[in-house]
């Protein structure tokens, strides 16, 4: 997987070949996955553009390159399931049903945003969709997921709590404490490790003595599986199987998505810690173009159809931007709201 290069940086290459196998899904599902990935991609490309224009500020962490993970994993969940995500969560939020309008408005800091402009890009929430953030503390969501699953267990509710986190989280104590608790108490948590090989600028081999992350799960007697996170066919199939296992057996499962982010860690990141050749290798595995190519090879997607789909997504993005732009700045007199729940129970 690794080979030294002239600059002394080790190239970390995709674990397998570019996927070319026929897409085994029915037309609606096959097309839906493509649409899901495109929606994330176009939303984020627009967000990056608007960041450059100064309309979005703060930290903005793009998911570009990793779309197959969210597309596969989110589709594998049921509406009653729970999702706990990270600060790189635009994709999960969008596919969980948070509207592109509400996400864009949140990035703009408008009160029409899904967190009323109090969270921004890193803290997207939708309690109705059981989407519990948007957490910018690395590994901070894992204990939360354990507790949400514990609440389900104690109330006799059968559902899956899907908890997303990156390879960086594996170095945190919260990861290990939470994995242990989930296994000890046999809680239905689907641990979704998005291994994009970099914790900000620190590569996995520079952070972990054991880079095979599934072995960490084995240490807690949690069933684990690694999957090609660049292949949406693989991510969906693996996530569906894993979620079904968690749901049926009511015990945790660790799913490692081997993926890669094409953009820098955040908009502040000069991206000096990795070789451009490495990025190029991974781009050959880009989840959208490889998937599109497979569908085309199968004769299941014509270029015009792709362009039509892309245009439809583009219109959704434009509409979201217009919505965010037309949104309102919350009155400064409301500054202190939502620090505590108001006496009426918080119907705010």
């Amino acid at each position: 997987m690794s080979q030294p290069n002239q600059a002394g940086l080790e190239l970390m290459l995709p674990p397998g070949p570019v996927p070319t196998a026929p897409v085994p899904f029915a037309p609606e599902l096959a097309r839906g996955l493509l649409r899901d990935m495109l929606r994330i991609r176009r939303l984020e490309e627009k967000a990056a553009e608007l960041y450059g224009a100064g309309q979005i500020r703060g930290f903005l962490h793009l998911y570009i390159g990793e779309e197959a993970v969210a597309a596969g994993a989110m589709l594998a969940l049921q509406p009653e399931d729970t999702v706990v995500a990270t600060y790189r969560e635009h994709g999960q939020a969008l596919l969980r049903g948070v509207s592109m309008r509400a996400i864009m408005a949140e990035m703009f800091g408008k009160q029409e945003g899904c967190s009323r402009g109090r969270g921004g890009s890193m803290h997207l929430f939708d309690a109705k969709a059981r989407f519990f953030g948007g957490n910018a503390i690395v590994a901070g969501g894992l204990p939360l997921a354990v507790g949400l699953a514990l609440a389900d267990r104690m109330q006799g509710i059968r559902r899956v709590t899907a908890c997303f986190f990156g390879d960086g989280a594996v170095a945190e104590g919260a990861f290990h404490e939470s994995m242990n608790l989930a296994a000890l108490w046999q809680l239905p948590v689907l641990f979704c490790c998005e291994n994009n090989l970099y914790a900000m600028g620190t590569s996995l081999p520079r952070a972990q003595s054991q880079t095979d992350l599934c072995t960490k799960a084995a240490g807690y007697r949690i069933a684990a599986r690694a999957v090609d996170g660049m292949d949406v066919v693989a991510t969906y199939q693996a996530a569906l199987e894993a979620a079904d296992t968690v749901r049926a057996a009511q015990q945790p499962f660790f799913l490692e998505f081997q993926t890669y982010r094409f953009r820098a860690h955040s908009m502040f990141d000069p991206d000096l810690y990795r070789d451009k050749a490495e990025v190029e290798h991974w781009k050959e595995h880009g989840p959208i173009h490889t998937y599109t190519a497979r569908l085309k090879t199968q004769g299941r997607l014509a270029e015009e159809q792709f362009l039509a789909l892309d245009a439809e997504v583009g219109r959704e993005v434009d509409d979201a931007v217009a919505f965010a732009d037309a949104g309102h700045w919350e009155a400064v007199s409301d500054l202190l709201r939502d620090v505590h729940t108001p006496a009426d129970g918080g119907a705010s």
């Binding site: 729970t82 519990f132 901070g140 894992l142 204990p143 939360l144 997921a145 354990v146 507790g147 949400l148 699953a149 514990l150 609440a151 389900d152 104690m154 109330q155 919260a174 404490e177 939470s178 242990n180 608790l181």
Partner: peptide, 12 residues
Amino acid sequence: AFVGAGIGAALG
């Protein structure tokens, strides 16, 4: 983890 799990359980 168990304080965090308490938060999660409260949310749940």
